[in-house]
Design a protein around this nucleic acid. Structure first.
Lengths: 247, 247
DNA sequence: CGTATGGTTGACCCCGCTCAATTGGTGTGG
DNA sequence: CCACACCAATTGAGCGGGGTCAACCATACG
């Protein structure tokens, strides 16, 4: 145990109901900053469909499925991945509460990857055609869509660089930390919902290397690890990640 | 020389003028498929500004510059890159005629990377705010923007995978081949406008490794290389690239 | 309990990097 | 036209980070 008081609270974006959007949702900014009135907000809201819960191991969509909706993670974690010709799984990313999935499917109108729940997941589903139609009438929505899409372009480039195992792992942990912090959760203590194998695939490492890096990081006092619970102990890890994350 | 008859013709998307769009432009589909009349086409066209030529080594934009426009490459090649804390250059991508640059800048309203011309470059510049405004009135334009943004999300993930030097190099060459083919240029014979160092950075290899892989590919009869001219000799290279490109 | 699954650790090895020397093409000045 | 310089590219030698393979450990579950 990292703390005798028990594990950190599970990150959940849980302040949405039938009439209000989750404040952690990727679209909350579009609504609030756009200065839209309640009627317009409702117009956007009517497109939203809360679906789930998906239980651990359940697929949200699979590669090749016809695309018709994007979704925001409301609670839980989604892993996206592809399977290559040799049957090897390649993890593309992890999606935390408040983050979008399905954006890469727009261009081909089919999902180009699989999406699976790593723990119990609830989603806010947006019909994309309706969303796009609405966007023509609400510039703030259109702009938010452009922003979300543009963001994802940059994200993918991060880990594509030629960095050491240590740098990539540090960047991975710091990225999680910041994303949790942005949603109001602890940036220093959190639970990894993904397996070592998943992390390894995402970071282009062997699972054994993930183990070894975790251990070395702990020996060096950068983090504390207990199974899947992580505690970040100081600013040193962030320093390591700097090259990759380019603040 | 690869051929005694001389080098392949330089890829140029050159059929646009003051009243018509380049047929190779990323937006041509939006216009043609959208079934827009000439007046509407002109409305889109008035946003376009042909700029350049940029000469080799000249920057189109730099990291941190305020974002106000996206652009389509009309002729030439653009390299995008970032510089890390150690001053090391990391190449993010190469943009051929017909392809867009600047899309990743939308979310931050600043360019997150540098863009430099590798040879004489002419661009079609689109003011993004005007473009977005137009998109609210022309759903086809909006959809095309969504498509372009979505495409770029998937692209970055390609080379992010855990592949061998041979696989990545094969994928790089086949990708170029297909992109040339899509614009009507030869898929089997083309000129690399980028240096070995650029290719190496893009593929996360040492420049020396690029040399060695080229040589081995040539010895194995996969390609013919003469300086920066490339000829793809058979379908074997495509087979090698299959894992990465996932057709 | 026994079994299964995920994670850890150790031993060994190989792909691709580093360092260094050489080649070759291109441009420039005499 | 040649001599020289300069830089990109090539080639070789040696090495090391991270992969592979295998054994072992720990927790969860029947």
């Amino acid at each position: 145990m990292l703390r005798p008081t028990g594990p950190a609270p599970t990150p959940i974006a849980d302040d949405g109901d039938d009439f209000h959007f989750c404040s952690t949702c990727a679209f909350s900014a579009a609504c609030l900053e756009g200065g839209y009135g309640k009627s317009q907000l409702r117009e956007l809201h009517v497109l939203v469909e809360h679906i789930g819960p998906f239980h651990e191991g359940e697929h949200v969509f699979r590669e090749g499925d016809p695309f018709n909706a994007i979704a925001a993670v409301r609670s839980g974690t989604i892993k996206t991945y592809v399977v290559d010709a040799n049957g090897r799984e390649q993890v593309l990313g992890f999606h935390l509460p408040g983050e979008m999935i399905g954006l890469s499917a727009i261009s081909q109108s089919r999902y180009p990857c699989n999406a699976i729940a790593l723990d119990p997941v609830v989603l806010c589903r947006f019909s994309f055609t309706s969303m796009a139609a609405l966007a023509t009438r609400m510039p703030g929505v259109q702009q938010q869509l452009f922003r979300l899409l543009s963001q994802d372009i940059g994200k993918a480039a991060l880990l594509a660089g030629n960095y050491t195992a240590d740098e990539r792992m540090a960047a991975f942990l710091i990225s999680l930390s910041r994303r949790f912090a942005a949603r109001g959760f602890s940036p220093t203590r959190f639970v990894l919902t993904m397996s070592r194998t998943d992390i390894a695939s995402y970071l282009r490492l062997a699972a054994e290397s993930v183990s070894r890096v975790f251990r070395r990081f702990q020996d060096e006092g950068l983090i504390r690890v207990d199974r899947r619970e992580i505690e970040i102990l100081g600013p040193d890890l962030e320093e390591l990640a700097r090259n990759v994350l380019r603040d």
